[in-house]
């Protein structure tokens, strides 16, 4: 059984159709990426999942039941635009959000102190939120999202504004939760993160679902004529070559798509013949970014 089933969601605001017939399934224990550019309809979809917006049509099923206000207690939500009460103290803030989810007492105190220690904020628990740096405020928001030990975690751009050490710490905590069997949904426009962390994805463009399923299966499906290349040299000789369909240059890495799957060996020979110093040649590999560009017809 899927943890979450999103079925034919529609939502419009006046003349704007924000979400059009979006359906996807999130398996139990998945780290799920909801991917699309800004304004694609990701946040509206999440708000409908959380029952903040009522869909014009369609429904969201969580473990066999239609989502209602009781579902909110099982969710930890980190919105894209963070929001905390500036005058509240750190520990009070965390306890307030836990209590809103129906959890309070010693257990919450203990968990809050553990998280604060892990994020190196133990000495700031009596500080007011407004006295913390933006990065530290973000950590408090993240702790508040997880403090009630939710079964279902929705994170919108969780790494924005964090330094590399805290990004790593956050990633560890997310993976820990995933290992415990929690369902994690990412909403992001950064394909790199989604590719590294998610095992399932749904891609939304202009309010419509353009792709969904297991990341592995999707990549296998799209990668058959692709090569991911790291090199030194000049690739301009490939322009106009009859075996090449498309070249996407990202600086250090270049994605090359050949017209037929059996032309990959010819491509490798061409590179060596033209004195290209090949550092990595990964056949049948394609980035999520390339898949998005191919499907949406434009860059992110």
């Amino acid at each position: 059984m899927h943890a979450l089933e999103v079925k034919n969601l529609f939502k419009s605001f006046g003349d704007i159709n924000a979400v059009k017939d979006v359906s996807f399934n999130v398996p139990e224990g998945a780290v799920f990426g909801l991917i699309g550019r800004n304004g694609a309809g990701k946040t509206t979809t999440i708000r409908m999942i959380l029952n903040i917006y009522l869909p014009d049509k369609g429904e969201v099923i969580f473990r066999g039941n239609k989502v209602d206000s009781a579902f909110k207690d099982q969710v930890g939500y980190l919105p894209e635009e963070r929001g905390l009460y500036k005058k509240m103290k750190v520990l009070d803030t965390i306890k307030f959000f836990a209590e809103l989810k129906g959890k309070s007492g010693k257990e919450i105190n203990k968990r809050a102190n553990e998280y604060l220690e892990r994020f190196e904020l133990s000495d700031r628990k009596d500080s007011k939120i407004e006295d913390l740096s933006k990065g530290n405020q973000q950590k408090i928001q993240f702790i508040s999202t997880l403090i009630h030990d939710p079964d279902f975690i929705i994170l919108d751009e969780p790494f924005a504004g964090l330094d590399p050490i805290n990004t790593e710490l956050l990633k560890d905590i997310i993976l820990e939760n995933s290992k415990k069997g929690k369902v994690v949904i990412f909403s992001t426009h950064l394909m790199d993160f989604a590719e590294k962390m998610c095992d399932h994805i749904a891609m939304i463009n202009n309010g419509e679902l353009i792709l969904s399923g297991s990341l592995k299966e999707i990549k296998t499906r799209f990668a058959q004529k692709n090569v991911s290349l790291n090199y030194e040299g000049d690739l301009s000789f490939l322009n106009g070559n009859p075996i090449i369909e498309k070249i996407s240059d990202f600086g250090n890495t270049t994605g090359i798509r050949v017209k037929e799957a059996d032309q990959i060996q010819k491509l490798l020979k061409l590179l060596i013949d033209n004195s290209i110093n090949v550092k990595k040649f990964d056949a049948n590999d394609i980035s999520l970014h390339d898949i998005f560009v191919e499907l949406a017809g434009s860059d992110l």
């Binding site: 903040i52 939500y77 009460y85």
Partner: peptide
């Protein structure tokens, strides 16, 4: 203020 600094979205993910 709650609306403009987006606390309301966090609150609405917990309460109606």
């Amino acid at each position: 203020e709650e609306k403009s600094n987006r606390i309301v979205e966090v609150l609405l993910s917990s309460a109606t």
